[in-house]
């Protein structure tokens, strides 16, 4: 029973999202594709930052390692995608661990700043180190796609979002999820309870990096091009953060919800505010939601469902 209700929720989500393209325009489907990618990135960010409290400002760094690896392999060496994408994910795990693992020994603002520096470092490196391979400032274009057309890409990206979401939900509902939550509340008390905080952080980080790597690799093959300014960008970073926080951090459904909400909000604001001033509006909306309910849209949705339930029960009881 404890498992059945959330699984039914996942099933309903899957069915609705699979039927959706039949009822919306191709333009909306294309927006949904970006929402799916944002959901993957936000879920990835949330595993390390929402769960353990280690706020990462360097997620584009992780996404970028996978994206650049697979892009360079396919662009220069004609490596098949079935090989280059796992190679990109592996590169994220290895490269990310080399940089992030020492950083996981520091906490709070320092961790956030160090990871922010990783993103900036990656931005500089892609332009300076071997620009013939990375494409330098202009990046690389003409990167092969996995599938073509809005609908196949939608199903591909939604399939990824769904599989990652469900996988994370299964992982985080085990005792690992509780241990990571405890880590966020009091790391010292976790160690005093006999748990290796380094091992737990490493697990959270590897899971987060793997998801970021998968998202980054598929993202670049969807876009068909890659450039450092687009990827290692502060707006990109904050969109990921806001999606996770707005949706509800330390949950799996929250970042997905936040990603869809934010992507559509930005798109619907575009005709009225074509420039970067859109970010002021979404920042304001995010702030208002966050002040009203710090646990995000996920908690608001939960409260609404709870409010509906007793009324349904009383309606059933009444003649």
């Amino acid at each position: 029973m404890q498992l059945a209700r959330p699984l039914l929720g996942w099933l309903a989500f899957g069915v609705v999202m699979c039927l959706l393209p039949a009822f919306v325009s191709t333009g909306t489907v294309r927006i949904l594709i970006f929402a799916n990618f944002l959901a993957i990135f936000a879920m990835s960010w949330d595993v390390i930052s929402g769960r353990t409290g280690y706020i990462s400002f360097g997620h584009p760094f992780l996404i970028g390692i996978a994206a650049y690896t697979t892009a360079m392999l396919t662009y220069h060496l004609d490596t098949p995608l079935w090989l280059s994408i796992p190679a990109g994910v592996l590169a994220t795990l290895v490269g990310g661990t080399l940089f992030f693992l020492p950083a996981l020994r520091i906490r709070g603002t320092y961790f956030a700043l160090v990871t922010l520096a990783f993103m900036e470092l990656m931005y500089q490196l892609t332009q300076v180190i071997a620009p013939k391979i990375t494409g330098g400032t202009r990046g690389l274009s003409g990167i092969p796609s996995l599938v073509s057309g809005a609908i196949p890409n939608y199903y591909l990206t939604f399939g990824l979002t769904f599989a990652i979401g469900l996988g994370l939900w299964f992982i985080l509902r085990t005792r690992v999820g509780a241990a990571l939550a405890a880590l966020r509340m009091d790391e010292g008390a976790v160690a005093a309870s006999g748990l290796s905080t380094i091992r737990l952080k490493l697990f959270a980080f590897m899971t987060s990096a793997a998801v970021a790597g998968v998202g980054g690799a598929f993202y670049v093959h969807y876009l068909g091009s890659i450039a450092p300014r687009g990827l290692f960008d502060i707006n990109f970073l904050f969109t990921i953060l806001v999606a996770a926080l707005l949706g509800g951090s330390a949950t799996v459904a929250g970042p997905i919800l936040g990603a869809y909400f934010l992507t559509f909000l930005l798109e619907y604001l575009r005709p009225f505010l074509p420039g970067p001033e859109r970010y002021v509006i979404y920042g304001t909306i995010a702030l208002v939601v966050y002040v009203l309910e710090p646990r995000g849209l996920h908690a608001i949705a939960h409260a609404a469902v709870r409010r509906l339930r007793p009324s349904r029960a009383s309606a059933a009881a009444s003649p």
Binding site: I171, T174, R175, V176, A178, A179, A181, A182, M185, D186, G188, A189, V190, A192, S193, G194, L195, S196, R199, L200, F203
Partner: peptide, 29 residues
């Protein structure tokens, strides 16, 4: 130093957790 967002029972369960991610993933309390 309790884990503030956990119930008393869940706090105690943290103390009972094995120091192994694999066991935390696969074993029931």
């Amino acid at each position: 130093r309790p884990f503030g967002e956990m119930t008393v029972l869940d706090n105690i369960r943290v103390g009972m957790m094995p120091d192994s991610v694999r066991r935390l993933l696969t074993e029931r309390p």
